[in-house]
């Protein structure tokens, strides 16, 4: 479970994140939906303690990542915005490296890789050097690498950015499976269909704030709109509805 209380951060004079609070419980997919530059990535980066919040607090299963970053990271699996692989290493070696950094034994790593290969359908390229991988193959390896330690909490920043239909479906079904295993999944996106397809709870982020939350249905009811996209536009423009 991820709990966020009144998180704020500014870069110079720009206030990127303003008093963001929410709870992402276990057994649920929570989405941060917002336009580019709305403050999603900065919020996520504070949650996985890559940057220090100006104020506010984060709790990952009761652990404060600011105070105990290593402990919190063991409970977290993160697919960040940048997801570069080591091109001279094979997909397997990329994943093994992160497993070892997590302090896993070689046998633990190998059996985990076997199940990830299965779930993410990586059989064809698991032992190939990652140089020249397609976007979809790269994202799969990056997800496997991030989740090699089978964490309870999963954070993904725009996971399907730049993926084709088949890869997107693959990632979605993987997330559903992980949710079924009782995981807490938090992801950010600016794509409406994406959010509508997988998330249970949607948090609409605009100008550094969470300005609405609820299921897709609830958000449409709140705004009297008949699509998530219309509801989103209504919320972020205060009902003025720019085209």
């Amino acid at each position: 479970m991820i709990e966020v209380k009144a998180l704020s951060k500014s870069f110079g004079k720009v206030k990127a994140v303003k008093e963001v609070s929410f709870v992402a419980p276990d057994n649920q997919v929570t989405a941060l939906l917002g336009a580019n530059g709305a403050g999603k990535t900065t919020s996520l980066r504070m949650i996985y303690s890559l940057i220090t919040p100006e104020s506010g607090e984060v709790m990952i299963d009761g652990i404060n990542p600011q105070k105990e970053p290593e402990k919190a990271r063991k409970l977290l699996g993160v697919l960040p915005d940048s997801r570069g692989l080591y091109l001279r290493l094979t997909a397997r070696e990329n994943i093994q490296y992160f497993g070892r950094l997590h302090g896993m034994s070689e046998s633990q790593i190998n059996s985990r890789i076997e199940s990830l290969v299965e779930d993410l359908r990586m059989q064809d390229f698991i032992d190939r050097k990652t140089d020249g991988f397609s976007q979809g193959q790269r994202v799969k390896v990056a997800i496997a690498r991030a989740l090699v330690h089978d964490p309870q909490n999963i954070i993904l920043d725009e996971p399907t950015n730049g993926l084709d239909v088949m890869s997107t479906r693959g990632v979605r079904s993987f997330l559903r499976k992980e949710k079924a295993r009782g995981k807490c999944i938090l992801f950010s996106s600016h794509v409406m269909q994406e959010v509508a397809a997988v998330s249970d709870e949607i948090l609409i982020v605009n100008d550094g704030r969470v300005c609405a939350s609820g299921t897709e249905k609830q958000l449409m009811e709140q705004t009297n709109m008949n699509s998530l996209e219309d509801a989103f536009v209504h919320i972020v423009t205060n009902g003025e509805g720019h085209e």
Binding site: S82, R83, G84, A146
Partner: peptide, 11 residues
């Protein structure tokens, strides 16, 4: 290579 951020997320 954009691999620094993922690397820094390890414990």
């Amino acid at each position: 290579r954009n691999s620094l951020e993922p690397l820094l997320l390890n414990p």
